[in-house]
Design a protein around this nucleic acid. Structure first.
Lengths: 213, 213
DNA sequence: GCCTAACCTGACCGCACGGTCCGTTTGATT
DNA sequence: AATCAAACGGACCGTGCGGTCAGGTTAGGC
């Protein structure tokens, strides 16, 4: 990479696109256990080409995840302008869980620190969620002791819960999102036994760790 | 194994015990990625000895998990006689989450069908949880549309949620158990969008799958 | 149409894993 | 103390992985 951003050659761009698609599918099916060779085969390219585009399997994973995270950020930003703040938060959680359903990110816990750009993206997502949370609280739709960190952590739960049942109906996660969201409502909430983990958005965002170790 | 159950030789019994302890610790730290060689080293025995006791890595894992599951079953049975049925259920969930915290079982999703004995154990646990659930509902402490399957699925959630935060305080999981349990209360519950997955205890218990694929 | 840098490929390497095997050691029994 | 089946241990094997590289291929400016 002589100049930081030279336009990609046509075939290279094509390959990169199908590589990302294949990687997404393969990671979704097999998690971290997906092998680079399988991804390459699925994309119809050689294994060496994979490593030309991404020097490491982890970098490839990071690229896939980055797409997901940025997508969620964009959605959150859009939802921040919806009138009903409570409904906006619920819709965000719904979308987040739905996408996790397609690509369960929880295996990321076991992957190192991945990319730096990914850390930034996560930070942006965090900020947008903070907006949603504060608006929902101001509207009285969300209990006051919940932080953006709580939301970012809990949004992974429904798909994970469902992942234990073998032939789950495709929308089963909605059941558990419903239960959890009921737990987030101010009505009938009981005091929480533990403080939220490091909620402040500025100082140590990395604390949140969508993907840390 | 000529006779089905001959008493173990003294050294063999000792080794088996330290092997199980080492396996539990190692699986807790590294999940399915724990290697048999590491477990053997930690137990202070040779690798061959491990395979003498358990013909397969999966069998070893199954033995460790069986202990856990049976422990939970015993606890549930004890709690079934407590006067306050709502508190009993909460205490069960508390204990379950706490133990998951020490040994996150969610990696089991990616392990095959494991042992048959484990399937039986899971069935017994399921039955005991059903008792707790029905008592809690009769006492008005648990919303009526919750099944034992829901409980068994949700009891894994708090520890999983917490596993994403790097240096989590040891009791942080209680925060998320609190939120989820609030969502299970009848007070202020909103209708759930999806039916529970195959709750009936008799016909196809395997549906629940603490560990299936 | 030619030239070159960018790109692609698949054989190859080193490594770590699960599992096997057989020579050695050890606990029980007499 | 002698005996022997039971248990041990670690060198060994095959496999599949992430990652490298030398040599062939191609896009695209001229």
């Amino acid at each position: 990479m002589p100049t930081p951003d030279r336009p990609l050659r046509a075939d290279a761009a094509r390959n990169r696109a199908s590589l990302l698609a294949a990687a997404e599918a393969e990671f979704a099916e097999r998690g971290l256990a997906a092998s680079v060779a399988d991804i390459a085969r699925r994309a119809g390219i050689g294994k060496g080409t994979v490593f030309r585009h991404f020097p490491t399997k982890e970098d490839l994973l990071a690229a896939v995840v980055l797409d997901r995270v940025d997508g969620l950020t964009a959605l959150a930003r859009r939802l921040a302008t919806v009138a009903d703040a409570g409904a906006a938060l619920l819709e965000f959680l719904d979308a987040a869980a739905s996408r996790q359903q397609q690509l369960d990110l929880s295996f990321l816990r076991d992957a190192g620190d991945l990319n730096d750009r990914l850390t930034e993206s996560r930070g942006r997502l965090f900020e947008e969620i903070t907006v949603l949370v504060e608006r929902a609280q101001a509207a009285g739709a969300l209990r006051a002791d919940i932080t953006a960190t709580d939301v970012i952590l809990l949004m992974c739960a429904p798909s994970h819960v469902v992942s234990f049942v073998p032939d789950a109906p495709p929308q089963l996660w909605r059941r558990y999102l419903g239960i959890i969201f009921d737990g987030l409502r101010p009505y009938g909430a009981s005091p929480l036994p533990q403080p939220a983990p490091d909620a402040a958005p500025d100082p140590r965002l990395d604390q949140v760790g969508i993907l840390p170790h």
